[in-house]
Amino acid sequence: MKRGRKLKTKEQEREQQPPAGRTPGRAARYQARPSEELDEVNDVDELDEANTGWQQTTAKMAGLTRLVTVGIWALLLAGPAIGLVAVAASGSSASAPPATSTQKATQPSATGPAGFAELYLAAYISAGEGTEESLAPYYAEPVTLANEPGSRTATRVVTVAAQPVSKGYWAVTVAAHVSAKDATGKTADQGLRYYRVGVQVAGTPEAGGAAKPAKSGGGQALYAATSLPAEVNAPTAASHGDLGYGSDSGVSSNDPVADTVSRFIAAYLTSQGELGRYVSPGLQVAPIVPAPYTSTLVTSLRDDQEDGSASDDESVPADGARRRVLATVSATSGDQDYTLNYALTLSTRDGRWEVAAFDIAPALSAEQTGPVAGSASPTPSPAPTPDTASPSAPAGN
């Protein structure tokens, strides 16, 4: 097929000219112009059809262009709405907790029941005939006591055990340091006494109860004792596991480890000397203010060196060497000496030993098996005398 423009005959040209004496209108002009142009387009369309196989006309292409334009505008207009839907979907999925967290129940806290039991026991020990109403905030049942009010007092109470009996119900064991009047009216120290109290809780697990937060409405938790306290035996004593230190190797004046420990303890407890001189860079520790003691003396030093020759070594190892020690200290206040223990970790730097860590607890041996029950005698609970016994307190086991 030839490229180029088709030649028109004179007859075709006369047919396309407007009638004489009449100005062609917009439609006539529009219809008159494309004949020549359409011939060119037809040639191009025929060429494209031959080369590509696409059978399309200018009208089809114009319609396709309009369709694509409308589609692009539709996407642009719908973009914000689609974005909002995506954000809402992602927000809801992010805020939704995992299925495992919803299935895991919150463990109830014993703090609330323990505090309530301590207050109840202190009120019970001090109460007596005529003052039974002091127990009403803790125990709602009517109570009749036969002992004289104030015949016993609790100078200190502390919870030693809190065991859940069922949902929202606790058995709390409280230790009380009790003083009581004897037959002559003199106050005698009766030592530690142990009592068990049943405490029922209405509230969320954080308060010791079993109510769901949504149902509790954030209201105040309610506590109620289910009986008068029961006096019981002291808990079984136990021995601790093996520590990560050797036997006492003594304190030598020539031992650089003992010298650093002694100076550090003195600066810490008595404010004598500059504490920063004996600690490694980065360790944050300050002396106790006001100083509780006037002088200190390291009386023994246990080291984690297996050969037990730490105190005989007067040399200082290369930088970076570490050693753990457990120091026994005699601290003087007034005319009294008090014994203390301090666990420290030391390291070497610039030819000297420094305190690298103020350990929060003595180090345990890697082979230790934990506390051993029954290896130490428990603290006995003295039997109450007939003059101070309260018939309202049930006997413990």
Score class of each variant (00 low, 15 high):
residue 1 M to C: 08
residue 11 E to K: 07
residue 15 E to F: 09
residue 24 P to T: 04
residue 27 A to D: 14
residue 32 A to Q: 15
residue 33 R to H: 10
residue 35 S to A: 12
residue 35 S to G: 10
residue 38 L to K: 08
residue 45 D to H: 04
residue 47 L to D: 10
residue 51 N to E: 13
residue 53 G to V: 07
residue 69 T to S: 11
residue 71 G to H: 13
residue 79 G to Y: 13
residue 87 V to R: 05
residue 106 T to N: 05
residue 109 S to Q: 00
residue 114 A to K: 08
residue 136 A to C: 06
residue 136 A to V: 12
residue 143 V to I: 15
residue 144 T to H: 09
residue 149 P to Q: 12
residue 155 T to S: 15
residue 156 R to M: 12
residue 156 R to S: 12
residue 174 V to F: 02
residue 175 A to G: 14
residue 178 V to T: 10
residue 181 K to R: 06
residue 182 D to Y: 04
residue 185 G to A: 07
residue 188 A to I: 15
residue 189 D to F: 09
residue 193 R to Y: 02
residue 200 Q to G: 13
residue 206 E to L: 03
residue 211 A to N: 10
residue 211 A to L: 12
residue 213 P to F: 07
residue 216 S to L: 08
residue 221 A to G: 10
residue 229 P to A: 12
residue 234 A to Q: 06
residue 236 T to I: 12
residue 240 H to Y: 05
residue 242 D to E: 13
residue 245 Y to F: 12
residue 258 A to V: 00
residue 292 P to L: 00
residue 292 P to Y: 02
residue 293 Y to C: 07
residue 295 S to Q: 11
residue 295 S to V: 06
residue 301 L to E: 03
residue 304 D to P: 01
residue 313 D to W: 05
residue 315 S to Q: 14
residue 320 G to D: 06
residue 321 A to K: 02
residue 323 R to V: 10
residue 330 S to H: 05
residue 330 S to E: 14
residue 334 G to D: 02
residue 337 D to K: 14
residue 341 N to R: 11
residue 344 L to S: 01
residue 344 L to F: 01
residue 346 L to R: 00
residue 349 R to C: 05
residue 351 G to T: 00
residue 352 R to F: 01
residue 355 V to K: 03
residue 355 V to Y: 00
residue 356 A to E: 11
residue 359 D to W: 02
residue 364 L to V: 04
residue 366 A to H: 04
residue 368 Q to R: 11
residue 371 P to E: 14
residue 371 P to W: 03
residue 375 S to A: 09
residue 380 P to C: 00
residue 382 P to H: 07
residue 389 A to K: 12
residue 393 A to S: 11
residue 397 N to D: 13
